[in-house]
Design a protein around this nucleic acid. Structure first.
Lengths: 243, 243
DNA sequence: CGACAACTTGACGGGCGTCAACCGGAGTGG
DNA sequence: CCACTCCGGTTGACGCCCGTCAAGTTGTCG
């Protein structure tokens, strides 16, 4: 499993470079982090609520999400993640996981020891700055999700989720804003928006009938992005230009 | 307005001390931060969405909240704050505010220049660690709010909000868990839980009839805390022992 | 070709929003 | 001291959005 040719952490370097100015030394320090890789099937749990991982998970390929459960058995997805995302920076400084991390598709991840990453953050101020910014943007997205789930009706809510997902895919170099692929089921969309899968389906149909989106299986096409943005009440400010 | 007797930043020292081990030097560095104080009436906006503050706001007395607006005019409160809270640490590293900060009661605040606080964080690693942890706990609370608004019904949702608020008041030394004072209106509770003020009122009445809480004006009494915790689906893990 | 998961659609009901009226306390001005 | 105003709280009637239940379709993988 250990496969330290060093190049696999390149996505992490490129992500953090967008968040702060990194020196050559910084980059080398990141690339020389020890890690192990693992391939995991769709629908598995990478990190479990209340556990204390001891290592951080870098998503190299595929899609994942973070989720929490309510007492009555309801699942709430609180964020989606794609390649290049570091899934649990918060565990550098918080002892116990307050949520699950689950795979949505088959994924490839790199595990990095918490202590190594933490040391890196505090010995290289600009890396620390980048990681901190990453968690702050994370928090900003959570705030937007609270608004989305709390104050928008189902149609707008789903449209907003699609906009955010598209924007992040484009930023990560996966597909274009006009045409992209959804990796998640309608049930997972429901879990992210606080709706039932049935109602997600209804609203996707309506969005299609309105001509705001076009669907073919899980591929979404958005012809008029300006219109989509209005329908979705989407304003990318909260992504803070990166995400 | 400048009133640097130095002692007014004591709450900040005590808050950060709970988040990381601070040396005497660290404490002195915090206390010697330049700041100005201001008294602000209830219902005012301290920081406006899309603005770029340039300074951070420490809440010395009273209550405040952070909020966002949806296109259709809905307001969503994303967090409540009480004395000792630093209201916008995220602006140390993010350029533009993605939400408003509003006063709930009359408050007294201390303004600290962003650059001063930022320098402090990076020159004193343990202060940086404490501030970072603070923002991570913030994010954890947002995740819980997404779950709360997305997957719990109105009664549980409001009960959960009350539990969190009580826990944080107790942690800050304001009142006891068995009896505390709500500073916010039922409309603000609704804005925090994604409900209308009318329905908040109904659910508060039901919680009273169920004997879970007792109300007198805005004072809340919780006799059986274990029962309350069950009704509210409340598990303080996500507060990460501080907050 | 059979099994199973995801998607789709319809019928029905309930939780919560909306509208409206009234009450009570605090502040204000005569 | 009392009338007036205003904000917040309270309660009832009614309706809609979305949840629930159920059945059927599609697609994929063995």
């Amino acid at each position: 499993m250990p496969a330290n040719d060093g190049s696999l952490l390149e996505p992490l370097v490129s992500k953090l470079s967008k968040l702060a100015e990194l020196s050559a030394t910084d980059r080398e320090a990141i690339l020389s982090l020890p890690y192990t890789t693992e391939e995991v099937r769709a629908g598995r749990c990478l990190i479990r609520e209340r556990s204390n991982p001891g290592r951080c998970c870098l998503l190299l390929r595929g899609f994942a999400c973070r989720s929490k459960m309510s007492a009555n058995g309801g699942r709430q997805i609180v964020s989606f993640h794609l390649q290049g995302d570091l899934l649990d920076v918060q565990h550098l400084l918080l002892r116990v996981a307050d949520h699950n991390v689950e795979t949505i598709t088959d994924v490839k991840v790199a595990w990095i020891a918490k202590d190594d990453l933490s040391r890196l953050a505090f010995e290289h101020p600009d890396i620390g700055r980048a990681l901190w910014r990453d968690t702050l943007i994370d928090a900003s997205i959570f705030r937007e999700w609270v608004l989305n789930v709390g104050r928008r009706d189902a149609k707008v809510r789903i449209a907003h989720m699609l906009c955010e997902f598209a924007a992040r895919c484009v930023a990560a170099g996966l597909g274009s804003a006009e045409r992209f692929e959804l990796p998640m089921t309608q049930e997972q969309i429901g879990d992210a928006t606080g709706l039932t899968p049935v109602h997600v389906n209804r609203m996707l149909r309506v969005l299609g009938e309105d001509g705001v989106i076009a669907r073919a299986g899980r591929t979404i096409k958005i012809a008029d992005w300006e219109r989509m943005r209005q329908v979705a009440d989407f304003d990318a400010t909260y992504l803070h230009a990166v995400a």
